[in-house]
Every structure is written in structure tokens, then in C-alpha cells.
């Protein structure tokens, strides 16, 4: 055991073996992404050999019409899903954590279902549901399908925030003359909005990311980015896919760090 810093010589955060494990873990996680980014600047048609630095594939990506349609679809679906599931999920969280019902436990379990049942099962059952009602598959069906599982995630995140909110605050507000609606808008929402925001972001990313459920429930003209990339791969992997992925990595990194920055400023 190392004795360089005797004052913090606790836990597992020290020693050579620990660093080796940590570094190999990080390499395993991030090396593929690093290679992917490097090869997006490769001048070659094939990923196997390095032919020199170039922005060629970014230019090709920029002029790829069907790709942009897919991105547009993805953003429309993600935005609509975020609005719908954040609204409904927050309502569900408020109802489940602030009122007592018969069969409370059942409601909670139902809420967890979309998180635990396999995507394929949910995808097939949604497809059968749409077919049963002769619902045309398209943007709307994908949005409904995404909302059906996003609501659960939003509700759980908001419920976690609500459980940290002192019930006495609501009683205090009522005591001071606020009716139920005013308690909601003036006391509960101002205190839980970071949770609602987090739930909304989660719904947005889940939507952008989703493949299986989208694959089953989308129709003509509602291809999303993951579906588009998958179909591109079927015709061979070009560095254009690397370029698209690099842009996505850049975007998500920016999004996550801006949230962190925002959170820190608030404190």
C-alpha cells in the first residue's frame, strides 16, 4: 500500500493495481470513440487505412439530403415526445406522491413496467396496437410510442425530487391562504423544476437514441437518425458515418457540460 499521503489513506482510491484497473476501464470505454473521431477525418473511402487528413466526409454529410430529413424527423419526434411526456410524467409524479389511492402499489409497478420490459416486447405490442386501430404509421405513431416509455422515466425523476420536498411547505402555503392550484404553481413547481428539466432532457435523449421501438412503429417518411445510420451501414461503412457520429458526440458533450455549468451557477 502506498504511504505518500497518509491523511487520505482510506478506501480503494490508491495503489498501482487500482490505477491499472481504472485506466483499462477508461480505455475500454473511450478508445472506440476516439478512433471513430480520428477516422472521420480520414481521406480514404475505407476505414481500414489512413490516407491523410481531410474534411471530405463532413462536406458529403452536409450535402446528404436524406440524412438531414432523418435528423429533422428525429428532432421533431424528440421535441414532441419531450413536451408530451414531461407534462404527463410530471402530472403522474404529482398524483402518485401527493395523494393516497387504493392500489397505490399497483400504480407504482405499472409506472416501472416500461423501464423493465424488453424494448422488443414493447415495440411489437405497440405495433399490434396501432394495427388494431388501423393507425397509420408515421411521425405521430413514433411520438406516441416514445411517450409511452418516456413518461415513466420523467415520472420517476420528478418523484425523486418531490420526495425531497418537505410536505410542511405545502401545508404552510395552504395555511397562508393558497388554494391547491396556487400551492402547485407557487410552491411545488418552483422547487421541483430542476427535476422536471432533468426528466425532460432524459426524455429528449431517450427519443433521439431509440432504435428498436422506432424501427417497429415508424412508417414511410418518418425515418429517424438511428434508423438512417443503420440503413447506411447495410450498404457499407463509409467515414460519413464516423463524421455524423463525431458531430453527435460533440453535441451531447456540449449539452451535458452546459447543464453542469448551469447547475453550478444556480448554486
Amino acid at each position: 500500500m502506498s504511504h505518500r499521503d497518509a491523511t487520505s489513506n482510506v478506501g480503494f482510491g490508491q495503489g498501482k493495481s487500482v490505477s491499472i484497473v481504472t485506466i483499462s476501464g477508461l480505455v475500454f470505454l473511450y478508445l472506440p470513440i476516439f478512433i471513430l473521431i480520428v477516422y472521420s477525418f480520414n481521406d480514404s473511402r475505407f476505414s481500414a487505412s489512413w490516407n491523410g487528413f481531410s474534411f471530405k466526409w463532413y462536406k458529403i454529410m452536409w450535402h446528404d439530403g436524406p440524412l438531414w430529413t432523418a435528423i429533422k424527423n428525429t428532432l421533431i419526434i424528440a421535441t414532441a415526445n419531450t413536451l408530451v411526456s414531461t407534462f404527463l410524467g410530471t402530472l403522474a409524479a404529482l398524483a402518485l406522491s401527493r395523494h393516497r389511492y387504493r392500489f397505490m402499489g399497483v400504480y407504482h409497478k405499472i409506472l416501472h413496467m416500461p423501464i423493465v420490459i424488453p424494448d422488443v416486447v414493447q415495440a411489437v405490442s405497440l405495433l399490434m396496437l396501432f394495427a388494431f386501430f388501423h393507425f397509420t404509421l408515421g411521425l405521430v405513431s413514433v411520438i406516441l410510442a416514445h411517450a409511452s416509455f418516456s413518461i415513466s422515466f420523467v415520472a420517476l425523476v420528478v418523484m425523486a425530487k418531490l420526495s425531497n420536498l418537505d410536505r410542511r411547505l405545502e401545508e404552510a402555503a395552504m395555511d397562508l391562504g393558497a388554494n391547491r392550484f396556487q400551492v402547485l404553481t407557487q410552491v411545488i413547481l418552483p422547487n421541483i423544476w430542476p427535476g422536471i428539466l432533468a426528466g425532460g432532457l432524459l426524455a429528449f435523449t431517450l427519443s433521439i437514441d431509440d432504435f428498436v421501438i422506432t424501427f417497429f412503429t415508424s412508417g414511410v417518411g418518418s425515418t429517424t437518425l438511428p434508423l438512417k445510420i443503420y440503413s447506411m451501414i447495410k450498404f457499407g461503412i463509409t467515414p460519413e458515418i464516423n463524421a455524423i457520429s463525431t458531430v453527435l458526440v460533440l453535441f451531447s458533450t456540449l449539452a451535458v457540460s452546459s447543464i453542469h455549468l448551469f447547475d453550478r451557477e444556480k448554486k
Binding site: 418537505d166 410542511r168 404552510a172 402555503a173 395555511d175 397562508l176 410552491v187
Partner: peptide, 27 residues
């Protein structure tokens, strides 16, 4: 409760954490 002219001082204070002293009292 919101229609009773009775006010409560809570053991845990129950001050609104998102409001400053003025806005708490003004509630």
C-alpha cells in the same frame, strides 16, 4: 385551511426555500 383565519408556525419552520425573507413574509 386556506380559508381559516388561523395561521401556523411550524416546528420545522417550513420556510419557502425558493423565496427570500421578504417574499416569504409577503406570501
Amino acid at each position: 385551511p386556506h380559508k381559516r383565519n388561523i395561521k401556523t408556525v411550524f416546528q420545522s419552520y417550513a420556510l419557502f426555500p425558493h423565496l427570500n425573507v421578504f417574499d416569504n413574509i409577503a406570501f
